[in-house]
Simulated assay, not measured.
Amino acid sequence: MPNQRIGAILDGLGVELDLTDGCIVTSAVVFCKVVKEDGTVTLGYAQSEGMCWIEGVGLITAGSDIARRGYAEDDDD
């Protein structure tokens, strides 16, 4: 299967991100449940063009923590 741009797919699934004015998204990782034509289910993964593996692992690790525990902004940054 050839690579596909997934912006429209994410839009169709209703994926949204709460951003305030002035925020800029600089990189992203995406995990997707994919059901193949034969009915098998797999996990799809994609990351922003130009990201190094260290940034990808960092986003995945932080994202996992947020998904499990929630997110609260830290004023100590």
Score class of each variant (00 low, 15 high):
residue 2 P to S: 10
residue 3 N to C: 07
residue 5 R to L: 12
residue 5 R to A: 14
residue 5 R to V: 10
residue 6 I to A: 06
residue 7 G to W: 02
residue 7 G to T: 08
residue 7 G to C: 03
residue 9 I to A: 14
residue 10 L to C: 04
residue 10 L to W: 00
residue 12 G to P: 02
residue 12 G to I: 05
residue 13 L to N: 01
residue 13 L to E: 01
residue 14 G to K: 02
residue 14 G to P: 02
residue 15 V to T: 06
residue 16 E to H: 09
residue 17 L to P: 00
residue 18 D to T: 06
residue 18 D to K: 13
residue 18 D to R: 09
residue 18 D to N: 12
residue 19 L to W: 03
residue 20 T to K: 15
residue 20 T to L: 13
residue 21 D to M: 09
residue 21 D to L: 10
residue 22 G to N: 05
residue 25 V to L: 09
residue 27 S to H: 07
residue 27 S to C: 08
residue 27 S to M: 06
residue 28 A to S: 14
residue 28 A to F: 14
residue 28 A to I: 09
residue 31 F to N: 03
residue 33 K to R: 15
residue 35 V to T: 15
residue 37 E to T: 10
residue 37 E to K: 11
residue 38 D to F: 08
residue 41 V to K: 09
residue 41 V to N: 04
residue 42 T to E: 11
residue 43 L to W: 06
residue 43 L to D: 10
residue 44 G to P: 02
residue 44 G to Y: 00
residue 44 G to V: 02
residue 44 G to K: 02
residue 45 Y to V: 09
residue 45 Y to F: 15
residue 45 Y to W: 08
residue 45 Y to Q: 08
residue 45 Y to P: 00
residue 49 E to T: 08
residue 49 E to L: 06
residue 49 E to V: 06
residue 50 G to F: 03
residue 50 G to R: 06
residue 51 M to E: 05
residue 53 W to Y: 15
residue 54 I to R: 11
residue 56 G to M: 13
residue 56 G to F: 06
residue 56 G to V: 14
residue 57 V to I: 15
residue 58 G to L: 08
residue 58 G to Q: 11
residue 59 L to M: 14
residue 60 I to C: 11
residue 60 I to L: 07
residue 63 G to L: 04
residue 63 G to T: 02
residue 63 G to R: 01
residue 64 S to V: 12
residue 65 D to I: 13
residue 65 D to E: 15
residue 65 D to G: 07
residue 66 I to M: 08
residue 68 R to T: 10
residue 68 R to M: 11
residue 69 R to T: 11
residue 69 R to L: 15
residue 70 G to V: 04
residue 70 G to C: 05
residue 70 G to N: 02
residue 71 Y to F: 14
residue 71 Y to G: 11
residue 71 Y to L: 13
residue 75 D to K: 09
residue 75 D to T: 10
residue 75 D to Y: 00
residue 76 D to I: 03
residue 76 D to S: 14
residue 77 D to R: 08
